[in-house]
């Protein structure tokens, strides 16, 4: 493959690859690094033909898992970086499962519980900061988080 072929591949699939990395690493710079590594590999290996998107996505996933491995256990549990939650499932199936879980949460959790769950885990805010931003007690934030986790457990129990 020539550099022009790599560029074509980059321009066509970068966004999809970057988004997959973001859903595993949650970090913008790390996700860009992961995708970049995959293209560096393509340049170095001098492939004859352009690999399909499925190959590129599998490569991104593996690269992300390698990066998770280098994080301390502390960080992995705080930021919910999990190798096991990133099994090599085709992205369309994975997206369907994600949609199902999101839909279940919308139906079974209150908007405030979902908001607090997002603030705690997606925005990685501390309980104390969430409480002060929403003007509620820490205990209340704690109770909402417990409900959210219970809700997610129930979803998996029913499956």
């Amino acid at each position: 493959m020539t550099t022009q072929d790599i560029e074509q591949l980059f321009r066509t699939h970068y966004t999809t690859m970057y988004r997959l990395a973001l859903t595993i690493l949650y970090d913008d710079d790390e996700s860009k690094d992961a995708v970049s590594e995959v293209f560096v590999h393509l340049l170095e290996k001098e492939y004859k033909e352009a690999p399909p998107l499925s190959y590129l996505l599998a490569a991104v996933r593996n690269q992300c898992l390698n990066m998770i491995e280098h994080h301390q256990v502390h960080e992995r549990i705080i930021r919910l970086l999990s190798e096991e939650a990133c099994l090599p499932t085709p992205t369309d199936i994975e997206h369907r499962l994600m949609d199902e879980l999101l839909d279940y949460n919308r139906r079974h959790l209150t908007p405030l519980t979902r908001q607090i769950f997002k603030m705690r885990y997606l925005d990685e805010m501390k309980v104390m900061d969430i409480a002060s931003q929403l003007g509620i007690s820490r205990q209340s934030v704690h109770a909402h988080l417990r409900q959210a986790i219970e809700g997610i457990r129930k979803y998996y129990d029913k499956k």
């Binding site: 949650y26 919910l80 999990s82 096991e84 939650a85 994600m98 879980l101 997606l122 997610i152 457990r153």
Partner: peptide, 12 residues
């Protein structure tokens, strides 16, 4: 792991 997948879904 279930929580991690839920976070992944939100990020997605």
């Amino acid at each position: 792991e279930q929580l991690a997948f839920a976070k992944r879904a939100l990020k997605y």
